[in-house]
Nucleic acid binder design. Structure first.
Lengths: 242, 242
DNA sequence: CGCCTAGTTGAGGTAAGTCAATTCACGTGG
DNA sequence: CCACGTGAATTGACTTACCTCAACTAGGCG
């Protein structure tokens, strides 16, 4: 019996994978490795032969400007790829840092490319997963470009909740969230001071409380209306390829 | 002889495509269609069976918020895919509008998916192209999140120049650019008034002049330093798959 | 105990937004 | 041929959302 990892569940939502395909996918999982919080696994500019699948914990991908400003592009939760783009583009255009201690399984570039050649449907499935990730980044772009700080925070917390719900780590009541206000600031393009003020504002409005590593939705619907949250872009609509 | 379209050139930079693979790629190009400037080809929320390859002209992909605010995610130039993500995700999470009158070739979802099954290396090549597009979006995210208006504008004009250079439509002297200040504003997360001021500032600093549909780099190097422009993320490094 | 990191709050500054008026190029119809 | 409307660019005056600097609190840990 093939194990039901978060990745298999994720890809299975798009392509109904056959037993041999699942076997190829399983054979990709090489070494299991662990990394400690805060020490980068992938460094901007590095040419890198491995990608990872996150099994446990949280990570974030970010880019640095020369003067030290930083923009967090996305957070990764269990089941997500780490550094897939680095493989395909030869050189990493971003860094990846574990937010908590994490467990990953390593995937070698060469193995992935041969797997694609053998099982084209797997390549299609991964293309789909990459598109989904891109949709997240795009929504994040809209957040930063066109929403004010409070809407942005609200929308972000809801989106994260939605993603975690898909892997069974959140409910409409809330979720455990290891992010600091500094990380939120770098993700949302705000200062950490302002993040603090905005969180207070949302808390005092009775919509959401983020405290001590836990996000509690005090009034989910009110928050969703306030943030103009439309989850269609995250919804899988069932397999496209049978 | 297989024609040397912008798309073939682009994919060839990553995967050395064989004659039969090129033939499959050519067979994807169905009807040639034209669209007039300003009328959306893809609408947010639409479920859509076709994607396009842009042969001529400029387009942009964007998302709307309910209250009318808009964020332009990316501009597309000849050789780029339009709506690839819409196919893979079943439903379009964004709209696409031609900036100028455009010519495209249509690609049907079903054809694309069978092509992937027959020629896995083509799937890999498209995955690579999608990753490159994602890298653009990511850089755009950094722009908006962590650069001030002037840096942002400078960086954007340089990046666009780089992309156009790859398809032979720009030099270090400048390029023809059909974008209005309103479009720039929606892309950069600024007001059109501020776009105007920033353009003036860059012009008066002797770095770049954008006037009457033409971007002229008055001092390319000075501009690149000012914008902290690092083109590595756009550079193809030669084929990964031989 | 003292240090460090995360969070909290206040005061004052600044980048960018809004509103509004003006110009200019262009097209269109009386 | 000119009157008119429309869309893009330009500029000024004023407002505001968010930033920076700074001080302070509270928990974790050697």
């Amino acid at each position: 019996m093939i194990e039901n990892t978060p990745l298999v569940r994720k890809l299975g939502a798009f392509v109904a994978l056959s037993a041999p395909e699942l076997a190829v996918l399983a054979s990709l999982h090489k070494r299991r490795r662990t990394f400690v919080a805060g020490r980068d696994l992938v460094r901007q500019g590095q040419s890198d032969q491995a990608a990872y699948i996150l099994a446990n914990g949280w990570a974030c991908s970010y880019k640095l400007l020369e003067d030290g400003r930083r923009q967090i592009v996305d957070f990764q939760i269990p089941g997500d790829f780490l550094g897939l783009r680095s493989i395909l583009l030869h050189v990493s255009d971003h860094s990846i840092e574990p937010v908590t201690d994490i467990e990953v399984t390593e995937i070698l570039a060469a193995d992935l490319l041969t797997a694609f050649a053998q099982t084209p449907r797997l390549a299609t499935a991964v293309l789909w997963a990459a598109s989904r990730d891109e949709a997240m980044v795009v929504e994040h772009l809209v957040d930063i470009g066109r929403r004010d700080a409070a809407e942005r925070m609200a929308h972000f917390l809801l989106e994260l909740g939605g993603r975690l719900t898909l892997v069974g780590l959140a409910t409409k009541a809330g979720y455990a969230c290891p992010l600091t206000q500094y990380l939120l600031a770098d993700a949302l393009g705000l200062s950490s001071v302002h993040v603090n003020r905005v969180l207070r504002q949302l808390r005092e409005a009775g919509m959401v409380t983020f405290r001590e590593g836990f996000v509690a939705f005090d009034d989910y619907d009110k928050l969703a209306v306030f943030a103009k949250f439309d989850p269609t872009y995250m919804d899988p609509r069932g397999p496209l390829l049978l």
